[in-house]
Design a protein around this nucleic acid. Structure first.
Length: 550
RNA sequence: GCGCCCGUAGCUCAGCAGGAUAGAGCAGCGGACUUCUAAUCCGCAGGUCGCAGGUUCGAAUCCUGCCGGGCGCGCCA
């Protein structure tokens, strides 16, 4: 709200001076406090074009701003040619009234052109429990989906999985081996690359309970049954885990559909038409080098089965055909090469891949006592997402996965996460919310009821620096949501909420609310409402709870 | 060897469509609870922004090269 207003003013000032400047070139930033509320370097960037010293340009603009804008308390030219702006308390009061007036909707955007967005994330195959990487994926994907919704778009959360392929076969064989062992064949070997997690034995045990030794022979038919049971079990596990961190999907897309509905064949036919495939060594190759990729890839093996790349392409084409305006993929960093291939292939088929945004997040390392926790898929010694949630709670899990930028390697410090104290950054935010809730409880106890009208009246009493600083922080909320959504970086919101909490704690420490005299008291209650709403909404976007008490 | 990501305070990280004395949190040191939750607040200390060049009036930010770390480069997914 702040920046928008400042931008309007600057545009008007330039118009008055008859200097043509597009709104986008006017960038505003929040400078150190002593400089003001907002600062802009337009004069510096315009200096070359106008062939005038930056300070002279700045002075000219400042002059106009001072005469025209009643919202501005101070306009200063400083340093090499910055224009520093300071708003009047009345302007802040007006903003706070707007925030209070919007209530629970505060922060929500109304998109001029609402888009339909598909966010695909997690997409783990049902062969075992989710791990830490999936956790980061889930937290990022769900938060991005929330951000787009708050931007006024329509979002479909989608999970893509494959329940055919080799890994599912391996799941069946692994379960079967454990099943035989449970039936007394202690030496029955687990397949070479079999799954070794304990859950395999759990599944086998459930089969013993349900079928006794009826599956002992391991016929094809029986293995298929085992596989189906295994898949169902794993999916149930996965969904339960996701549910614990508040993640739910609208669509579960089974890769199998691409085959039964002929989508795979369609894609191959299209590639053939465009001359983008050729046969070599009995396999079908996709000519990716023709579309700017470093190497060609096999898409149908000599055995006749497609490699994973082909269904990937077909799946993305299918999503494009469903007519979304924007497609988001959330992938681990190990998908770089394939994601680029898929994009190039789709571009070759004529799809507008600028609408496809691939979010690649870097890996997660679990740290305990300052040392990385070793994990090995082979031995089944992995740290599951469920274990992590058991240990530190869903809120901490979600927040920790979001508090680093997506492109950065994430160190998940178990000791810090376990810490139920002030050291843990999640609690800092939640505590601010709980403190406010506590004041409202006190109000109830003391029978104090304050109408919205009274709050609006009282707002003009807010003159203290801590009060104005808090309003200023709150007013950024919609811009922060937009920035986080645009950059696809939840950390922007997470950092912002910490700033809000800080501004609140400072205010709280300095100024009593219920102890203040009317109408200041009412004004401060309004400030509390706005702060609580901001925290609650922000935390909701991150998928973290906003507790009433701690 | 090639591609992508990263290298900022003791630790974990912001800042990176170039701009004013480089910011947080944690750890360290020192303060603040008879008042709405001290899971809080205030202060001090801590940095050749990996290294070397280049572009610019101005570079942590852009370009090049090097060094270091992660992830990829299958007829595995």
């Amino acid at each position: 709200m702040l920046k928008k207003r400042a931008q309007e003013l600057l545009v008007a000032a330039f118009e008055a001076l008859q200097i043509p400047v597009s709104a986008e070139t006017i960038r505003l930033e929040i400078p150190r406090q002593e400089f003001g509320d907002l600062a802009t370097n337009v004069a510096l960037t315009l200096a070359k074009r106008l062939r005038k010293p930056p300070r002279a340009i700045a002075e000219q603009i400042a002059e106009v701003l001072r005469t025209m804008a009643e919202d501005l308390a101070q306009v200063e030219v400083a340093g090499p040619g910055f224009i520093n702006l300071r708003f009047t308390p009345q302007f802040y009061h007006q903003m706070l009234r707007q925030i209070v007036g919007q209530g629970a909707q505060w922060g929500r955007h109304q998109a001029e052109h609402p888009l339909s967005v598909n966010v695909e994330f997690v997409s783990a195959n049902p062969t075992g429990p989710l791990h830490l990487g999936h956790g980061r994926n889930a937290a990022i994907g769900d938060t991005l989906a929330n951000l787009y919704e708050w931007m006024g778009h329509t979002v479909v959360r989608e999970y893509y999985f494959n329940n055919a392929g080799n890994q599912m076969r391996m799941l069946a064989l692994s379960i079967y081996a454990r099943y035989r062992q449970l039936l007394g064949d202690a030496d029955y070997p687990l397949p070479e690359d079999g799954y070794r997690g304990e859950y395999i034995t759990d599944i086998a045990r459930s089969l013993v309970e349900q079928y006794g030794d009826q599956l002992r022979q391991g016929t094809e038919e029986q293995l298929q049954l085992i596989q189906k049971k295994g898949e169902e079990w794993c999916f149930r596990m996965i969904r339960q885990t996701l549910d614990r961190i508040g993640v739910q999907f609208d669509v579960y897309f089974n890769e199998d559909r691409l085959y039964t509905e002929g989508k795979i064949e369609e894609v191959i036919a299209l590639f053939r038409q465009k001359g983008l495939v050729y046969e070599k060594d009995g396999a079908l190759w996709l000519k990716l080098t023709a579309v700017g990729r470093p190497q060609d890839r096999v898409i149908v093996k000599s055995t006749g089965e497609p490699t994973y790349r082909l269904p990937d392409i077909a799946y993305h084409r299918e999503k494009f055909e469903r007519g979304y305006d924007v497609l988001i993929d959330v992938f681990g960093a190990d998908h770089i090469a394939t994601a680029e291939d898929v994009k190039a292939a789709l571009a070759a088929l004529g799809y507008d891949v600028s609408r496809l945004k691939v979010i690649l997040y870097q890996f997660v390392t679990l740290l305990e006592d300052g040392k990385p926790v070793k994990m090995s898929k082979r031995s089944g010694k992995t740290y599951t997402l469920d274990t992590l949630i058991d240990e530190v709670g869903a809120d901490v899990v979600r927040f920790f996965f979001l508090m680093r930028s997506v492109s950065k390697h994430l160190e998940f410090d178990l000791n810090l996460a376990r810490e139920q104290s002030e050291k843990n950054p999640v609690f800092y935010l939640q505590y601010a919310h709980a403190r406010i809730a506590s004041i409202f409880r006190k109000m109830d106890e003391r029978g104090i009821a304050i109408s919205e009208a009274a709050m609006m009246e009282g707002i003009e009493q807010l003159q203290q620096p801590e009060e104005l600083a808090l309003i200023k922080e709150l007013a950024r909320f919609p811009e922060v949501i937009e920035a986080a959504a645009t950059a696809a970086e939840p950390v922007i919101l997470a950092d912002y909420l910490r700033d809000v909490a800080t501004a609140f704690h400072r205010f709280y420490h300095q100024h009593p609310v219920l102890g203040a005299d009317s109408p200041l008291r009412e004004g401060r209650v309004a400030l509390l409402h706005a702060t609580q709403t901001t925290l609650r909404n922000g935390l909701a976007i991150l998928g973290v709870s906003a507790p009433e008490r701690m």
